[in-house]
Each structure stands twice: as C-alpha cells, then as structure tokens.
Design a protein around this nucleic acid. Structure first.
Lengths: 147, 147
DNA sequence: CTTCATGCAAAACATTTGCAGCTGG
DNA sequence: CCAGCTGCAAATGTTTTGCATGAAG
C-alpha cells in the first residue's frame, strides 16, 4: 500500500520538522493510524501497539493521538458516549456512514457538500471552519443477520 | 408563542398517554425545552428550573431529558467534550451551525440533504436511520469582537 | 394506597494530568 | 547530556445509578 506508506512518511516528516521525538511507540501508533481503513478507537490502537510493545501505556496512545490531532494529521470522530474513533488516512472533514449495529464506519463518496458550505456562509455571515457529517444506519451485513 | 405552547402541550400529552407522571419539575423542564431557541445544556436547564423550584436536582433534569429523548421529543446534540445541548423545538435530525467562540447554536435553512441521504442509501445498501450535520465556524458577532 | 419520581451521594467511565525515571537526538 | 517522552496512578468532569423519602394518580 504505497498510499498508506506515504501517509506514514508524511506524518513522520511532520513530527521531525517540528522537533518532536520519534519513539518506537509513536511510530507504531502512526503506522496504525496511517493505514486505518477501519477508523480505530484508542483502545483498538492500544491493543495493537501492545502486540509489539507490551509495556506501552494507554496514556501514551492518548498523548500521541492528541499530538497528531493538533498537527492536523488525524481526524477525530468524537462520540459523546465515548469510544472516539480516528481516521489517519484522511485527516480532513468528510462524511461518515456508521452502522449502529456492528459499529463499522465507512467513508462514502459524496461531493455535494462544498456547495452547501458556501451557501451557508453567505446566508449566515458565519466564517465556516469545519464540519461534521455522520449518517447512522444498518449496513447490508447486519440487515442480513437480523433476518 | 403558539408554536412553543403547542410543543409543550404535545410533550405533556405524550407523557400522559404513556402514563408517565406530570410533576412540577417535569413541566418546567418541558417548558424550557419546548421553547428552546438556544439549544440549552442540561446545566442551563438546571439553573433555569431552580429559579422556580430551588430544590430540583441535576439528576432529575438528566432523567427527564433522557425520558424525552427516548420518546423522541427532544434532539440531543452530544459533544464528546461534554456539555451536550438539546433541541426540544425540533426533535428530528437537522443541520446545526455552531460558533466555536461563543458556543451559540443556530438552525440554518438547508434543504438539499434528503436527496443526499437517498443517494447514499442506494449506493451503499445501508438502511439510513438518522444523521448528524454540524458546521463549525465563527458567527458575525464574534468576528467583530476579534477586530 | 401503590407506584413511580425526586434528590442525594456514590459510581461509572473515557480522557487528562502530575510526576519520577528513561531515552532520543 | 538534557529536553521531552513514557508509564503509572490519581484526578477530572459529565452522566448514570442506587436507594430512601415523598408525591402523583
């Protein structure tokens, strides 16, 4: 996956450029996030990191994720119920499609949002910085299992 | 405000119909939510209720809001940072425009979302139940104050 | 009267923080 | 070397819960 490798390289470069230290634990967290099709939770990242570095603490994972968030290298999908999810592959706002049964999160293709944003800005005078769009539903697999 | 009064009446009817008790505290919470232009937080509701019923507890406000949520009579805008906000006037999913400086929340007029939802369903096979769309930005007033 | 709601305090839980010791550069 | 990272444990802050008392119907 050259796409993910370049995301990882980009993240590492950004850390280096700003004189943050490259530790084994950090590399591991970045690797997982850069190749994150599944929008992992901190807990998921933690478990995966611990396979290679069993002494890693949850706090370190949180700190690394927070750092990446500040550098705009990961998109946080916060949920009030907790169990936030992270997208390191596409760290910019984009729509998500969330299965309320199996909790998988998918990135659908959806273009029409930019126009909406512009329209909103001119209507309200707001300076729009960002957005969040989630659709909730039941994925095809979970629909099958119910029947 | 006939609109808000009817919302309040509707909420009360729903509680009665399902044999939930009508207590003074509940009426007060419903009243505030039914007329909630400002998308109040639980804390805000709590303070307002206490003006008339000073012994009311925060737990009671939480319980009432949770009940209304289950009855689909209030829309919860959950934020992972906490301080969830509630819309009792329009208890169905709709877009919100949030000022990241003063935290006011506005309901903009935006139609084009239903078409998007239908398109998404046919593309992905998901059965779409609900959605959440928030725009974040700086409102005109806060833009002024900055300058 | 009986059941359900209230109010208090304690619990729950994800995330953050303080700090001593370790380590990358 | 030494600033900054790690790992542990304790703190945080919102929301939930258990339980005794009180009020709705």
């Amino acid at each position: 996956m050259p796409q993910n490798e370049s995301r990882l390289a980009h993240m590492l470069d950004k850390l280096k450029a700003q004189h943050f230290r490259i530790t084994p634990q950090r590399i591991e967290v970045l690797r997982i996030l850069a190749g994150s099709d599944g929008h992992p939770s901190v807990e998921t990242i933690y478990e995966e990191v611990r396979r290679d570095f069993p002494t890693t603490s949850l706090a370190t994972v949180y700190k690394t994720v927070t750092l990446l968030k500040e550098l705009n290298e990961v998109l946080e999908l916060g949920f009030p119920e907790g169990g936030n999810r992270y997208d390191g592959a596409r760290p910019y706002p984009h729509p998500h499609l969330i299965c309320t049964t199996c909790h998988r999160i998918i990135d659908p293709d959806l273009e029409s949002l930019e126009g909406v944003t512009r329209e909103l800005a001119s209507e309200t005078g707001f300076q729009i910085i960002s957005h969040r769009l989630d659709f909730f539903g039941i994925c095809p697999e979970c629909q099958e299992k119910k029947n």
